[in-house]
Amino acid sequence: MTWLDFDGNVYYIRHMTQFGPTVRDIRERLRRDDRRYSVRQVAQRVGIEPAYLSKIERGEVAPPSEATTVRLAAELGQDPDVLLALAGKVSGDLQEIIRKRPRLFADLIRQLKEAPDEAVLRVVREVRDGDW
């Protein structure tokens, strides 16, 4: 839970990103088939306190660090970039890529922001097949 002082008013906000509910939905779905996906066991495998995972799922605390989010994604079989995006984060390796050539990548991302998936895929580098 967070208290913010904004224009003299105090606002009580919960971290109402989709991160927590999404994590809870995925974990609960997995738990229906496999009891190893209880809050306690998932938290243990990810290396955090069960109470903390519970608060994350309820949106009572901000999404966890990048490293924890990536471990959580692996544990739940999710794409780490998708979970990081839900947490409002960009992975460290992507930040590093942008930092190296900021103008180039900023231009590229803006140019592609409305493009359909097929158009984005056209600029993705393919593994070249040769003569063998």
Partner: peptide, 18 residues
């Protein structure tokens, strides 16, 4: 990508890509 290291690899490797 083999292409990223073409200068350090045999030509045959570059030819087959991958």
């Amino acid at each position: 990508h083999v292409d990223d290291y073409a200068a350090r690899l045999p030509e045959a490797w570059h030819r087959r890509g991958g």
